[in-house]
Design a protein around this nucleic acid. Structure first.
Lengths: 219, 219, 219, 219
DNA sequence: TCCTAAGCGAGACGGTACGTCCAGTCTTCGT
DNA sequence: ACGAAGACTGGACGTACCGTCTCGCTTAGGA
């Protein structure tokens, strides 16, 4: 059983004791100012019009100071994202359906932020271009959501609402995919009703088999 | 912004010794040359590094000639896409599950084209940027696929494999979303097994209601 | 009878008449605007603080337009110089000494321009760095002065004031060198008295050879 | 490329340590390492491409350690120069012409050092920029040469080879100027023949007057 | 022996300018 | 009347140095 819990690390930063490089240490202040500037600029001008020059200028920082930390705009944005969407609480409403609805609402909230569309679409393009960026995003803000969701699903299995040997990845993609699809391709509405319907289909589609002995190996 | 160097190779494409007529030559020819150039360049350098200069150069065309036809890179690409993914046949395997599997395979084929990732991700960013582009893409290559899928689902309802009053949009997003999700976010595998599992969940989740009163013909 | 004539530069660029390249021709207006901007900026901020960005901005021109014409700041400045110091009239005062004094005065006028020091010293550094730039400067504003001086010296030989078979290069360097030396190394005064003394020494030192009969005043 | 700040010109004063201050004394070793690094780098990359970062790095020294001693690149280089060209012996060949030839050869040797061109041209630009640097150079490596030359000329006057009341400055500039002129402007050859010719012209041009009565004010 | 002050290597800091690239528009000439 | 060629303005890019400013650590003389 994997003991990885990426959800809400209680310690904050991994406090390295004293590897301490020589020279002047990097300014935490500058670091934070850059991230803040990036976030506010994205919200103002959108992701595509986001310029490194502008970020540096608004942060009151030299461009080199930005590039010293993030090689590309995308890795910078990815970290900004991560900072925003750090901890996703694991809901506990008493029922699997309720828990899933809470998770879906959290996702919808994210999608409904006017900044998200430009930001996330730019990030998708960046991830498609660079596996490094993709890794950063996945282990960043994606990991947290998915870990929380995984807990909910696990509890659902324990409750008997979901089949044994459930393919968690599949379940998560079934829950999250339609939102993404609507957001970026069809442009369809993303609302409570949609979320309710998706949860229902998934719960029904992944309910325990009536005849477990005939399909014990199924995933 | 995503940029990559693209000092387009001189690309010694032999100037077509076209029928040199005075007056009004090769409007259609130029049109097609531009689309071809765009497509081949996307496959070579990716969507983001695609430069109008390069397209015009490879097409053997002035930049103005490109802009005369398409105002933006995205509308040009959208038309190119449309040209590629024109007709989607409606499958007829005899069973709803079989038909859906065929549809899924067609989608997977598209996703598996190495060019698709860069192209589609760039397009997603462009759609997020501009509703006009979004419309073009939706009514273009998306519409065809969705229309075919709708036929299959309709037949599924008629067969009694899917519930009456089925929300087609929901069903389509449930089928297509997970692929998109894996493609661009999680990076998970997209294969026959996945497709099979998705179809199964959707069929089960959207099967006719078991409530006898609303389904009196069931025993 | 006015003998003042312009020394038409025999070294001037081969002004290509009309090989006529395709495409939009380069803008004469932009060309001139850039040179003017460069000149005025040099006078304002000095040669070293001269920035290509600033030149382009003041000229109301994109930086690429500047770089399309001049690869470096120095070649641009060299052309600007050439434009300023284009025509050097060949003096004709009736005596060799008088002619040389006029030439010296012209040089001194140049050196006394407050902008010259920074400009010429920067140019010297640039010439030392790049033979291409050196060539440009030599065939540019240097060539004109030297050609005029050569005429004067030639006439001096014809008049019998200077020795037959005179080494023109030597004579010119003897006349011009001390000015440069004071300007940039010793910082000594550059004035009429200096110019008079130099001319005198050179005339005496390069006078016709000391055949006793031709120098009856010698004891 | 020489660049300067528009704001706050640095103080180019060599910062000599006070007689006895508290704290750790400055490292002689570092001092020497910096000068050596500067000299070797000038020879390798030229004066203009000389970067303080590089000097510090090669010397194995922090940049602050460099700036603590020399406020500008030029003062540092000036001191390096001085260290190289320290003492110029006064020649004594028996004749004025011989002595002058020896002095000229020494100058030519300097000019012929491949490093000199870039170094001296850069220094000229720096001197034009700052009178303080100019002073440093003049009282540094220039002063030594000129003092030796002055001795030779003085002896020449005593011998009757040069006129009484000789303007030493003029004579020195006439001897040195042509070399500088060829070095940096015309690019002409600098060789034994040139040196011989210059000496000849100067000796002839500044020979004692044959008719002293016509110059009664001379002493 | 400890304290204080300035030195040390290292390297990050806010900046300026660089030279390149591309977007989208505007001319010129040739067909 | 088009079309190719390419110059145009404008602006972001990522790099290189500048001269200054911390860091943690010597290295001395004076307390």
């Amino acid at each position: 059983m994997e003991r990885r819990r990426l959800v809400s690390p209680p310690t904050g930063q991994p406090r390295t004791p004293a590897p301490r490089r020589p020279g002047r240490p990097r300014s935490e202040e500058a670091h934070h100012a850059i991230l803040s500037a990036a976030i506010s600029l994205i919200r103002e001008v959108g992701y595509d019009a986001l310029a490194m020059d502008a970020i540096a200028a608004r942060a009151g920082v030299g461009k080199a100071t930005v590039y010293r930390r993030w090689a590309t705009k995308e890795t910078l944005v990815a970290e900004a994202l991560e900072r925003i969407m750090r901890s996703i609480p694991v809901p506990d409403t008493g029922t699997t359906e309720g828990d899933l609805r809470v998770m879906m609402r959290s996702s919808m909230d994210m999608y409904r932020d006017p900044a998200t569309k430009g930001l996330l679409s730019g990030l998708i393009a960046a991830m498609a271009r660079s596996e490094r960026i993709a890794q950063a995003v996945r282990s960043g803000f994606l990991a947290a959501r998915r870990e929380a969701l995984r807990q909910v699903l696990k509890r659902g299995v324990a409750r008997g609402d979901l089949q044994e040997g459930l393919d968690f990845e599949l379940a998560m993609d079934l829950l999250g995919g339609p939102l993404l699809f609507r957001m970026f391709l069809t442009g369809g509405r993303i609302d409570e009703q949609l979320s309710r319907a998706i949860v229902e289909v998934v719960l029904r589609g992944l309910a325990p088999r009536s005849d477990t002995s005939s399909e014990p190996w199924r995933v």
